[in-house]
């Protein structure tokens, strides 16, 4: 699996092209904003009847990353479910699948703004996970360091010589890394947004997801 290595607070991390973060020394795989059950939520809100394809697609990719890394610990960085009611309405197959993925490994659910409470799946449920020298939480807090977060669904637009390309991306500097959304049907926030420009140091870099992840200085203004 191709990845870009970088270090944060002394920890050696790999940003995978899929959007997952791999901490080899601790055998820990971190994914953010899975938004499982988005289609069920749309249904409950009175939308159309959708088979839960997005959930399946997200789980397939997660399964592939788990097979490649054989991670002993998985940290889901919040907004794993589109809301707390989703769990009851996830089809049995999806529920079973999550149980299968969980078998034989430690699993941590960090709370997000979409799923701010305990859920009925195995694993630890935490507001945040300190794992020195790092801390895993859903939303970045300014002034912290060694922080791994998600929430914003960052993406980056690069103007190449022949065409502009926009993709989900990791953003990192010496204090933190913000993960792209791992879920299938999720929008994104450009790296040029005020939220990122204020939060990230001037020398911050972006790792663009894709077949081969690419590292570039984080774009801070539209080009």
């Amino acid at each position: 699996m191709k990845g870009v290595e970088f270090s944060l607070a002394g920890a050696q991390l790999t940003a995978l092209g899929s959007g997952a973060l791999w901490w080899r020394d601790k055998s820990l795989l971190c994914v953010s904003d899975l938004h499982l059950g988005k289609s069920e939520r749309i249904l409950r809100k009175g939308g159309s009847h959708l088979p839960p394809y997005d959930t399946q697609d997200t789980l397939i990719r997660l399964e592939q990353d788990l097979q490649r890394t054989n991670a002993q610990t998985v940290v889901c960085l919040g907004d794993s479910f589109d809301d707390l009611d989703v769990l009851g309405s996830l089809p049995e197959a999806a529920n079973d699948w999550i149980h299968q993925l969980q078998a034989g490994r430690r699993w941590v659910w960090i709370e997000g703004n979409h799923d701010p409470g305990p859920i009925e799946l195995p694993g630890s449920h935490l507001a945040e996970l300190p794992h020195p020298p790092l801390t895993f939480r859903h939303i970045a807090e300014s002034g912290k360091s060694g922080e791994i977060s998600g929430h914003y669904h960052p993406k980056v637009r690069v103007q190449t010589r022949l065409r502009g390309i926009s993709r989900p991306a990791f953003l990192f500097d010496s204090d933190r890394v913000i993960l792209p959304a791992y879920g299938t049907y999720t929008g994104g926030l450009r790296s040029t947004d005020k939220a990122f420009v204020n939060l990230m140091r001037p020398e911050a870099k972006a790792i663009i997801t894709g077949q081969t992840p690419r590292i570039v200085p984080m774009p801070r203004r539209e080009n």
Partner: peptide, 8 residues
């Protein structure tokens, strides 16, 4: 796209 991104 991969090649253009690599160049960039």
């Amino acid at each position: 796209e991969e090649r253009l991104l690599a160049e960039e």
